[in-house]
Design a protein around this nucleic acid. Sequence first.
DNA 1: ATGAAAGCGCTAACAC
DNA 2: GTGTTAGCGCTTTCAT
Lengths: 342, 342
Amino acid sequence: MSISIKDIARLAGVTVGTVSRALNDYSDISEKTKKAILKIVAETGYTPNVSARTLSSKRQTNIALLLSGIAEEKNRDSNVLSLLVGAYKFMNDSDRLIATYPINSRLQQRKTIEQLCAEYSLSGVIIFGLKNTDLYYKNIQSSQIPCVVVDFEIQGARQGSVITNDEQAFADITEYVINQNHRRLILVYGRDASEVTHRRYTGFCAALKKNNLDPATVPVIYTDFQEQVAYDETCSLLREKGRDAGTVFVCMSDYCAFGVLRAIHDCGFSVPEDFSVTGFDGTEFSRFISPQLTTIDQNFVKKGFVAAQLLCTILEKETVPQRIRTVDYTFRKGESVRYLAI
Amino acid sequence: MSISIKDIARLAGVTVGTVSRALNDYSDISEKTKKAILKIVAETGYTPNVSARTLSSKRQTNIALLLSGIAEEKNRDSNVLSLLVGAYKFMNDSDRLIATYPINSRLQQRKTIEQLCAEYSLSGVIIFGLKNTDLYYKNIQSSQIPCVVVDFEIQGARQGSVITNDEQAFADITEYVINQNHRRLILVYGRDASEVTHRRYTGFCAALKKNNLDPATVPVIYTDFQEQVAYDETCSLLREKGRDAGTVFVCMSDYCAFGVLRAIHDCGFSVPEDFSVTGFDGTEFSRFISPQLTTIDQNFVKKGFVAAQLLCTILEKETVPQRIRTVDYTFRKGESVRYLAI
DNA sequence: ATGAAAGCGCTAACAC
DNA sequence: GTGTTAGCGCTTTCAT
C-alpha cells in the first residue's frame, strides 16, 4: 500500500483536511503549516490519488482523446499520430495527462458516450476519426457531453470542432494543377462515410467550374481511403487506357496518392513525366518520397493542439464564443506535378 | 449527476451490497434477484464508476501504455501506431480499455514510475520507446511495478519484455546483401541510446565476419534514427565519393532508409541501379515506395498484442515462467537491392 | 487557521 | 441469500 494523505497528516501533525488545503492551494491556511506540509509531501514523494480525488471533488476534470477505427481499419493513417502529438504538447504545457482510448464499433455498441464518460469520470473528450456510420456520430450530437470533434462541425452548447477548410484547400490544389495547364484530371475519391470527402469534393467541383471545366466529365476512382484500393483501381485504369486516362491524379489523401504512385510505377510510367499526382494531408512520409508529393498539409499537430486547448477552454469557461476553430493549412509544392506546355 | 448503484438498489428494492454482488458475478445471490437487478441495470444504462471501484476494490486492475518520447522527438516513427493497434486488439478481445499516456522527460523528472502508478491507480504498465537516457530506464528496473517493456530485457519478478531477435534479424539482412554479392557495405547507424542499435550492430558484425569481411573497414553514417540526418549525411558522402562510396546502404531503420533513398535520388543516382538500400522495421510506408524497400518486418502489431497479453498474464498469475517473449520477424524482399554479377 | 465529519460510488467482510 | 456497515483516499462544509 502506498503512502496516503493520512500519512502526510500524521507526519505533519495536522488533519487530512489541512493537508488537502495545502495541496489544493486554498487560501485559508497559514503559510507556515503549508510550507511544512509541502516539505513533507516532497520528502515522502506523496502524490494524491486521482481516483479518490475524482470521486470526492467536483472540480477535478479528466479528459480523454477517443480514437475511432484505429484498431479496425486497414489503413489507419499516421495523421492520428501527429494529432496525438499536438494534444500531448498542449497538455504538457499545463503538466496534465490526457488519456487516449480506442473506441471501436463494439464499444460504441456496448455503451453510449454518456456511459463511457460516467464510467471513467470524464468531464470532456476529444474525438478523432469519427465516420458518419459510427454510433457515436449521432450519440454525441444528442448528448450534453462536453466534447471537441476533429474534422466535422458540431453545434452543442458545450461542444466544439476543429476543422480544416477542406473546400478551399481542395479547390486550391485543384486550381494549382489547372494552372499547370492540366485539363484532363482524374479524381481519386476518399470515403463517403467521412465528411471531409464531401467537402473536398465540393472544393474540387468549384475549382473546375471556375475554370470552365465540367466535373461530370472527370473520371473518378473510388478508394475508401485505402492505399491498396487506390493502387488496384489505378492499375486497372492504366492498363485499360494508358496515357489516355488523363494527365493528373488529384487525390483526396496522401495514402491514396501513394497507391496511385505505386501503380503508375508498376505499370511502367513515371511521375511527373507521364502522370502528375497530388495528395492531401501532409503526412510526414509525403516528404520522404521521390519525387516529393505536392500536397496540402493539414498541420495535424496543430489540430491536435487546438483541439485540446478548445476542450479545456470549454470546460473552464461558461460560454465559449468561437467553438468552431479552423486550423490553417499549407500548400506544399513537391515535384509530383508537371507543368504542361501548351 | 448520473445514475449510481444506490439508484439501482432503490429501483430493485434491494441494498447496494446486493447490487454489487449481482454486478460482480458473486455466487451467493439468488438467480432471481440477480436477473431482476441486471434487468434494471440494462434498462437504466447504469455503468459502475471505475474510480469508485478502483478505490474500494483490490481486484480492480487498471493498466496503461506509456509512450516515451512521442511528443518530443523529431521523427516519432509510425511503428508506435502499429504497437498501439496490437495492444488495443488484445484488450478488445477481453472488452477492456487500456489507457495510453505520453511520458516525456519532464514527467519522468517530476514523478517516479511508482508515483505515476499510485496517482493513476495503475496495477501495471507497458512501456514503449524507452531509451537508456530516460529516467524511467533505471527507475523501472529498481522498482516493483509490474510492467512489460518493449525492446529491451528486464529481469524483475513481475516484469517482462517483448523483443525482436535484432542480432539475428540484422545478421539475416546483412547476409542477404552479401549473398547478392555486395562487398562494399555502408552501415547507416541508429541511436546509441536505443538498445536495439547495439544488438543490430552485433548482428551486422557477426554476418560480416562469417563472410570474412572486416567490420572495421565499413564506413558508418550516424543518424540518431532521424530521416533528415540520414539524408544530409548520405548527401555529403555521395557528393564526396560518388559511386566509390560503396554499393549498398544497410540501414538500422526504415526511416533512415527513406532518408538515404531521398539523398540518392537528389544526388542524381538510382536505386537499385547505382546503389542498393535495405531498411529495418517493416513500416507500412516501406511497401508504398517504389522500388519497394527490402527490409525486416518487426511485426509491431503482434509485438503490441503480445505485450498486452504478457502484462495481463503477469497480473493474473503468481509466477509467469517465460517473461521474455521474442516475437518473430519477417524478412521482406523488395526491389531495393540489386544482384551484383561478379 | 485548523479540526471534525460527511460523503463521493463502490466493494467486501460480517451479520443474520 | 440479503442487509448492514466499514472503509478505499480524498474534498469540502461546518464548527470552533
